[in-house]
Design a protein around this nucleic acid. Structure first.
Length: 582
DNA sequence: AGGCCGTACTG
DNA sequence: CAGTACG
DNA sequence: GCCT
C-alpha cells in the first residue's frame, strides 16, 4: 500500500478515536499538513506511524500539494528532492512564504504542547533567510495587533500573504483527479476518551524533566509491592519503562529534602559533596514512588533511601516539619548560596569570602577586605541575574539561527544542532548549547571553523564575553563557553552559550551524550561497553571485584549513528526529545 | 572502609 | 593541582 | 548520605 493509499485509511482507522478527543488535545487542528516521506518502498512503517500521529493530532493530512490549502510541509534536507517533486517546483524558495516548511521535530513539539517559533525547524537554509527577514520586517508593526498569536512568525507570515508580493507559484492547483484533503472528523468537545494514544508523549516529556533535575541509575524500582517481585531482570530507565504519571504524592517530602540538599551542596568539604550526591539519588526515586509513603519500611524500600533519610521522611510524614531544616539554614549557608550564584564561584570561594567578612554582593563588588575576583568571576558578578535567569525558548532559537547562518557562510557543509534543554523541548532554556561538526566524506574537516566562527561572532557582537576558550582551537574536539546576546540594543540581556565541536565520527555519541545520557551510560557499562561524549567503546574490561575500575578502556566504535547505538544497547529508538517509539 | 561520572578549562 | 562547570 |  502506498503512503497515499494508507492515508486514505486513516479516517476509518482513527476517525472515531479522534472525534472523542477533547479539543485541547488536537494540537494540529486547523493545520493542513503535507507530509513528505522519504523511504524506500518496503519499509514504510515510519511513514505510517507519522501519518497516524499527524491525523490523531487533528491535522488535515494532505497527500498532494495544493498551495491554496497546505499550511505546513513536513520535510527535511533528505526529503528536499521529494518536496520539489511533489510540489512541482525547482527550488524551495518558490514555495509561497505563507506555507511553512518544518521538520518532524516541530510536529513533535507541537504535540508536546510546547509553543515556540517555527524558524528553528526550518529545514532549508534559503527559506530560513526568507522567513526570518519577513518576520523582522513585520515584527515592528506587529505589536499592537497581536495578542494571543501562536508565534510572531505565524503572524507575519499571514500578513505577508495578504500583500503577497513575490512570485509565488501561481495557484494552478495541480490536483490529480479525485483529490481531496482528508478531513478530520468533526469535534465533540464534551466527550473524551480514556485511552490517550499520545500519552506516551507526555510521559516522555515528564521523564526528561526528571533528567533535568536529576536521575540516573536503574529505573526507580520498588514500584508497588505486587509488582516488585516479578521480573528479575534489571530494568533501565532508558528502556522506556512506564513512568509514574500525575502529581507526586510525596511532594512535601521531596521539597523538604530538596531544601536539605541545597544546604549541603552549598557547603564545602567532600562529606557534603557526597551527601549531596546521595540526596540527589534518593530524591529522584522518591519522586517516582507511586504512592504516599506511610511507613518507615515504605521509605526504606525506595532505592537510595537509607536509615537516616527514612527517619527524616517519617518525621515529615508525622509532623509535617523537619526540625533539622530550622537550624541548618544558618547565615553562612545563606550567604554562601548567594555567592555561589556567581558563575565561577563554588563552595570553596564562597566560604573563603564569608570567613573574610563578606556578606553581600556589594561587598564582593567592592572587593571588601581585599578579595579579588578572577576574570570569569568578574563577568559572573556583573551579569549575576542574566546568567541565572532562563530565556524563552524562542530567544534561544533566534540566537541559534543567527549563529548557524554565519557558520554556514564559513563552511556550507557544517552540521549544527542545538542541544541541551532546547533539544529536549523545554519551554525555557538556561543556556544555549550548540554542537558543531562536519562530514568528512570529501576529505575535509571543521578543524579551523571554531577559530573563524568565534572571531566572526565577536565581530557581529553576538558573542560578548568569553568564559572559557578551547585549549586548542584547531582541535576537532573543542569546547567554548561564553555569553551572547540576541541583539546589540543597550541593556540587552546576556545569555550563557556553549559551543562545542566533535569529530564527525563522534556525532552519534555526542548527540546521545548530551541529551539522553545517564541511564543509558549505565546500561552500557553493565553490558560491557562504555559510553562517553566520543562514542561507544566496546570490549571494556572491568575489575570483577570492583566494577568501577576499568582494566582496559576498550576500543572506540567510531562513526556510529545515534540509532546504531540504541540498537547495540537494545534500547528502543526514541526521537531526540524522547517520544515516538517505532 | 572506600567508592560514588567523566571531562575540560582556569589560575 | 584544586576549584569550577556541565551534561 | 547510601551501597557493597
Amino acid at each position: 500500500m502506498s503512503p497515499v493509499q494508507y492515508a486514505a485509511t486513516l479516517p476509518d482507522k482513527w476517525g472515531e478515536h479522534v472525534s472523542k478527543l477533547p479539543r485541547n488535545k488536537l494540537y494540529l487542528s486547523g493545520k493542513c499538513i503535507l507530509y513528505v516521506w522519504n523511504e524506500p518502498s518496503g519499509s514504510m512503517q515510519g511513514t505510517r506511524n507519522k501519518m497516524d500521529i499527524l491525523y490523531k493530532a487533528g491535522a488535515r493530512l494532505m497527500t498532494e500539494y495544493d498551495p491554496e490549502r497546505v499550511t505546513h510541509i513536513v520535510a527535511s534536507l533528505d526529503t528536499q528532492k521529494n518536496v520539489l517533486q511533489m510540489c512541482g517546483i525547482r527550488k524551495v524558495t518558490e514555495l509561497p512564504v505563507h506555507i511553512k516548511t518544518v521538520t518532524w521535530e516541530w510536529i513533535v513539539h507541537q504535540i508536546q504542547g510546547i509553543n515556540h517559533t517555527e524558524i528553528y525547524y526550518e529545514p532549508f537554509i534559503s527559506r530560513m533567510k526568507q522567513v526570518s527577514q519577513a518576520a523582522k520586517g513585520e515584527a515592528a508593526k506587529d505589536d499592537a495587533s497581536s495578542s494571543a498569536k501562536p508565534s510572531y512568525l505565524e503572524t507575519s507570515a499571514r500578513k505577508r500573504e495578504e500583500t503577497d508580493d513575490e512570485g509565488s507559484p501561481k495557484k494552478k492547483a495541480k490536483h490529480g483527479p479525485g483529490f481531496q484533503p482528508l478531513q478530520p472528523p468533526s469535534l465533540d468537545a464534551s466527550s473524551s476518551s480514556n485511552f490517550d494514544p499520545l500519552a506516551e508523549f507526555y510521559e516522555q516529556a515528564k521523564l526528561m524533566d526528571e533528567f533535568e533535575v536529576e536521575e540516573d541509575e536503574e529505573k526507580p524500582q520498588a514500584v508497588t509491592p505486587s509488582e516488585a517481585s516479578e521480573g528479575s531482570k534489571t530494568r533501565w530507565q532508558c528502556d522506556g519503562a512506564p513512568v509514574n504519571s500525575g502529581a507526586c504524592p510525596n511532594q512535601d517530602i521531596v521539597d523538604k529534602l530538596l531544601e536539605l540538599r541545597e544546604i549541603h551542596s552549598a557547603r564545602q568539604g567532600s562529606d557534603d559533596m557526597w551527601r549531596t550526591f546521595s540526596y540527589r539519588k534518593s530524591i529522584a526515586n522518591i519522586k517516582a514512588f507511586p504512592k504516599r509513603i506511610e511507613s518507615y519500611s515504605d521509605a526504606r524500600s525506595i532505592k537510595g533511601v537509607g536509615d537516616k533519610t527514612a527517619l527524616k521522611i517519617m518525621e515529615i510524614v508525622q509532623t509535617g516539619e523537619l526540625e533539622r531544616l530550622k537550624h541548618a539554614r544558618t547565615d553562612d549557608i545563606v550567604v554562601a548560596q548567594l555567592f555561589q550564584g556567581i558563575y565561577g564561584v563554588g563552595p570553596a570561594t564562597a566560604f573563603s569570602w564569608y570567613s573574610q567578612g563578606l556578606r553581600t554582593l556589594e561587598d564582593v563588588k567592592n572587593g571588601k577586605n581585599g578579595v579579588s575576583l578572577s576574570l570569569v568571576q568578574e563577568i559572573g558578578l556583573k551579569f549575576y541575574d542574566d546568567i541565572n535567569d532562563r530565556m524563552p525558548r524562542s530567544e534561544a532559537a533566534e540566537i541559534f539561527c543567527k549563529i548557524r547562518q554565519i557558520a554556514l557562510t564559513i563552511d556550507a557543509k557544517l552540521y549544527m544542532e542545538i542541544m541541551g534543554s532546547f533539544r529536549r523541548g523545554k519551554a525555557t532554556c538556561g543556556d544555549i548549547d550548540i554542537l558543531l561538526t562536519r562530514p568528512t566524506d570529501d576529505g575535509k574537516t571543521h578543524h579551523d571553523v571554531m577559530r573563524v566562527l568565534l572571531r566572526r561572532l565577536h565581530e557581529e557582537e553576538i558573542l560578548t564575553y568569553d568564559l572559557a576558550t578551547p585549549d586548542d582551537l584547531d582541535d576537532l574536539e573543542a569546547t567554548y563557553r561564553g555569553l551572547c546576546q540576541v541583539d546589540t540594543a543597550p541593556g540587552r540581556r546576556q545569555r550563557r552559550i556553549d559551543i562545542l565541536s566533535v569529530p564527525y565520527g563522534s556525532l552519534g555519541g555526542a548527540l546521545l551524550y548530551y541529551t539522553f545520557n545517564r541511564s543509558m551510560r549505565l546500561k552500557a557499562s553493565h553490558m560491557g561497553y562504555s559510553l562517553n561524549q566520543r562514542g561507544l567503546y566496546k570490549g571494556v574490561v572491568r575489575d570483577p571485584r570492583d566494577r568501577n575500575k576499568k582494566l582496559s578502556p576498550g576500543t572506540l566504535m567510531d562513526g556510529l549513528s545515534e540509532k546504531e547505538i540504541f540498537d547495540i544497547l537494545g534500547v528502543p529508538w526514541q526521537e531526540p526529545h524522547q517520544r515516538v517509539r517505532s
